[in-house]
Simulated assay, not measured.
Amino acid sequence: MDTNDLRAALTVLMLLIFVGIVWWSYSGKRRQAFDEAAQLPFTEEDDSGPEPGNRR
């Protein structure tokens, strides 16, 4: 096995990992969890900003 065979095998492995991640993220079982995570910025209060009366 030379370097080119190793590179080809690594490329195929990375492609399979990528396809697996895409398949997992678009699967129907994960939809509810992703929808809840998408709404987090709108449901939590943001306490990191300045007070409304202390503007300069």
Rank of each mutant, 00 (worst) to 15 (best):
R55C: 05
G49K: 14
V19A: 12
P50I: 10
P52K: 11
G53A: 07
Q39W: 00
S27Q: 07
G53C: 04
D2E: 03
A33P: 00
L13H: 03
V12K: 08
G28W: 01
W24Q: 07
E51Y: 08
D35N: 10
L13M: 05
E51P: 01
R30A: 07
N4Q: 11
T11V: 14
L6K: 10
A8E: 09
D46A: 13
V22K: 08
T3G: 02
R56A: 06
A33E: 03
G28C: 02
R30P: 00
L10M: 10
R55F: 08
N54R: 14
T43A: 07
Y26V: 10
Y26M: 05
F18I: 15
A8I: 15
T11C: 05
Q39M: 06
R55I: 05
S48E: 13
F18Q: 11
F42L: 14
D46I: 13
R31N: 06
S48A: 13
E36W: 02
R31P: 00
Q39I: 07
R30E: 05
A37L: 09
E51F: 05
E44I: 14
P50F: 04
A8G: 09
I21V: 15
L6E: 08
E45V: 15
V19G: 08
F42I: 15
T3R: 03
A37F: 01
Q32W: 01
L6S: 09
D5N: 08
R56T: 03
S25H: 09
E36D: 07
M1P: 00
I17A: 07
L10H: 05
E44D: 09
S27W: 04
A37N: 03
D5T: 08
N4P: 01
D47H: 12
L10D: 08
R56M: 06
K29T: 04
L15F: 13
D2S: 03
F18W: 12
L16H: 04
L10P: 00
Q32G: 07
F42N: 15
A37P: 00
I21L: 12
I17T: 13
A38T: 06
D46H: 12
D35V: 05
I21Y: 02
P50V: 12
P52I: 08
R56W: 04
F34E: 03
